[in-house]
Design a protein around this nucleic acid. Structure first.
Length: 134
DNA sequence: ACCGGAATGC
DNA sequence: GCATTCCGGT
């Protein structure tokens, strides 16, 4: 669609978020890949469903099924072979204050995206009235 | 497992 | 600004 709202299949039904969320590399220039972007990239692909996947029920919630494998893949992308889940999870924790992610308390390896915040922060052409709906 | 401060690098 | 590394604390 014009404006750039894409739709992806998730176990419960549909997930909608903007096109830029799908891109492997950040569009302008060639900025470094960001972790939340990489996470969305893995979630998008079925081949990684056994490593990381959307959680049923809660919109934007996902479970890391194989933490060390996700860390290995992330380290591979960033050329950081010493990457592990301890370090990766610290990076995820920095997203809490930015309201990009938060932890689902009580559920192991489970986090939740705040898509509306991501859209609001990173898609300046979108105002409050043009929210993406399912 | 999960949290968040501190130092450091790019 | 966005992690990476390390780590003491819950």
């Amino acid at each position: 669609q014009a404006g750039g709202c894409s739709v992806a299949v998730c176990p419960k039904g549909w997930l909608a978020f903007p096109n830029w969320a799908y891109k492997a590399e950040s569009s302008p220039g060639s900025r470094q890949i960001q972790l939340w972007h990489f996470i969305l990239e893995l979630l998008q692909k079925e081949e990684f469903r056994h490593v990381i996947a959307w959680q049923q029920g809660e919109y934007g919630e996902f479970v890391i099924k194989d933490p060390e494998e996700v860390a290995r893949l992330w380290g591979q992308r960033k050329c950081k072979p010493q990457m592990n889940y301890d370090k990766l999870s610290r990076a995820l924790r920095y997203y809490y204050n930015k309201h990009i992610l938060h932890k689902t308390k009580g559920k192991r390896f489970t986090y939740k995206f705040n898509f509306s915040k991501l859209i609001f922060l990173n898609c300046p052409l979108w105002d409050a009235g043009t929210q993406c709906r399912v």
